[in-house]
Amino acid sequence: MIQASAFKHKTDHRFLVGTKFFSESICLENKRNLSLLSKSLSYTQLRITCFVIKTIRNGFTGSMLHQSWARAPVLTSAPGSARRQESLCLPPQLWNTCHPPELVRPTLEKTLKILQLDYVDLYIIELPMAFKPGDALYPKDENGKFIYHETDLCATWEALEACKDAGLAKSIGVSNFNRRQLEMIMNKPGLKYKPVSNQVECHPYFTQPKLLEFCRQHDIVIVGYSPLGTSRDESWVNVSSPPLLKDPVLNAIGKKYNKTAAQIALRFNVQRGVVVIPKSFNPQRIRENFQIFDFSLTEQEMKEIEALNKNVRYVELLMWRDHPEYPFNDEY
């Protein structure tokens, strides 16, 4: 992504930008304009508002920002920092309870109304697992068991294609899809648009080489979330894998270039063609996340970092592992 406790707000998050614990930013204009983008997570809209205004004032005009509970006026009318919509990338994500085709466009239209926009840059199927439609983000029965819904990814994708045709989304993509699920979409009779992107966990401890190669072959951009590892919250994160940024190899290479372990991890993925979406609310760290284009890793260093791969996910979503379309049972 999901940690239900992360959603304690009255706002209906199904209709806002990034309805999951890792809200992210990505700009994919015709799959050419790829940028390193900041990724943020907050539990109060005030914190988000201050963060966005401060970020824009700090001059991060080369990035596109969005947040789960930030609305477009915050982004476009910050004092002294007016921006057209084209200057910001807004990629909402279709939540699990909104998979039925008849709900896809109304959900996006509700998002657009809330954001006061005519279109979004990228519309993403957040997870390939449908939940029972309704008001509950995490529908459960009287025994506390999640209530799933019949998943028809092809039908949901056709509804996204219709949104693109209607001019409501510039591009459409997916998140957390495995190879089989991607092939299901791409082999669909009458396919009009392939996914432009697949957003998945990707970092030196989980390098996703086979999925990356498959997506390259099919011109699908891999967007790596948790590129610096993730939080150590045991309620939804696999904490058996050690913290990525303490890795001695990353820190040794960073010392050579006068860079942090985080910058080395980001540079590694960018250099192999992965769009990275790190998160931070720390202004200095946000700046550092952008300062990875003034050096390159050698072939040997890339191999050393690739060798760190443990094929272990931080984000496993084990609470939904009994879902028929749980994506992480497949090899990739």
Rank of each mutant, 00 (worst) to 15 (best):
R105D: 07
E316T: 14
L94F: 00
Q291K: 05
L250D: 10
R267S: 11
H323E: 02
R216M: 12
N269L: 15
N282D: 10
Q181M: 08
L191V: 06
E234I: 06
F177N: 09
T97A: 00
T55L: 13
G144A: 06
L36P: 08
E158A: 13
D233N: 12
L137V: 01
H13P: 00
Q291H: 06
W157H: 09
L108S: 13
L191T: 04
S40H: 09
E24A: 13
F7A: 06
T49A: 12
W95K: 00
Q284Y: 01
Y257E: 12
Y119A: 11
N176M: 06
P128W: 04
N96D: 00
P101A: 11
A6E: 13
I277W: 02
D165V: 00
P227V: 04
Q208F: 03
Q199A: 11
L112M: 05
F214G: 06
I53K: 01
I264N: 01
A162P: 01
V223E: 13
C163Y: 12
K192H: 02
E299G: 10
F206G: 00
Y314W: 11
R313K: 14
Q300F: 03
L28I: 15
L117D: 11
P91Q: 14
A82F: 10
G134Q: 03
L94H: 00
I53F: 07
I264T: 02
I292E: 02
N30W: 07
R287Q: 05
N311D: 06
E183S: 01
D135C: 01
K31D: 15
R313E: 01
R84T: 11
P204L: 04
N187K: 15
P189W: 12
K279Y: 08
S175N: 15
K310G: 02
G62F: 13
I2V: 11
M184A: 15
E234C: 01
T207V: 05
N309L: 03
D165R: 08
I185E: 07
L112C: 08
F328I: 00
L115F: 15
A78M: 10
P92C: 10
C215V: 03
P283Q: 10
N33H: 13
K10G: 09
G167Y: 08
S175D: 15
T151A: 04
R180Q: 15
V274E: 04
Q181N: 08
I305P: 05
